[in-house]
Simulated assay, not measured.
Amino acid sequence: MSILINKNTRLIVQGITGRDGSFHAAKMKNYGTNVVGGTSPGKAGQTVEGIPVFNTVKDAVRATGANTSVIFVPAPFAKDAMMEAADGGIKLIICITEGVPVIDAVEAQRYIRMKGAQLIGPNCPGLISPDESMVGIMPTNIFRKGGTGVISRSGTLTYEVVYNLTQAGLGQSTAVGVGGDPVVGLYFEDLLQMFEDDPDTDSIAMIGEIGGDAEERAARFIKEHVTKPVAVFVSGRQAPPGKQMGHAGAIISSGSGTAAEKIAAFEAAGVPVANETSEIPELLKKQLNR
Rank of each mutant, 00 (worst) to 15 (best):
Y159N: 11
E160R: 10
P130W: 11
Q167C: 14
A218Y: 08
F195A: 13
M134E: 03
D190A: 10
G169T: 09
G121K: 05
I103Y: 07
I151W: 05
E224P: 03
R113M: 14
G171K: 09
E224Q: 15
T201N: 11
I137K: 01
P125M: 09
E216S: 12
V226M: 07
G126E: 00
V102A: 04
S133M: 07
S173Q: 10
G211V: 12
A218P: 14
T201L: 11
D197E: 15
E209Q: 10
P139G: 00
S173D: 09
L170N: 13
G89D: 09
L186K: 08
D198Q: 13
I103K: 12
Q193N: 15
G89Q: 02
A85K: 09
T201C: 13
T174K: 06
C95M: 06
A205F: 08
I207S: 05
R144G: 05
G126C: 04
V184A: 00
S203F: 07
Y111I: 08
I103H: 11
E216K: 13
D197V: 04
Y159C: 02
E98K: 06
I94D: 04
I120M: 11
L186M: 14
F188D: 12
M114W: 04
G180N: 00
N123G: 05
N141C: 10
K145L: 07
E84I: 12
V226T: 11
Q193C: 07
D213Y: 02
A214H: 12
A86L: 11
A86E: 11
E189G: 05
G208P: 12
A117F: 08
E196F: 09
E98M: 09
V176E: 04
G208C: 06
A105K: 01
R217A: 15
E160G: 03
D104I: 00
G121V: 09
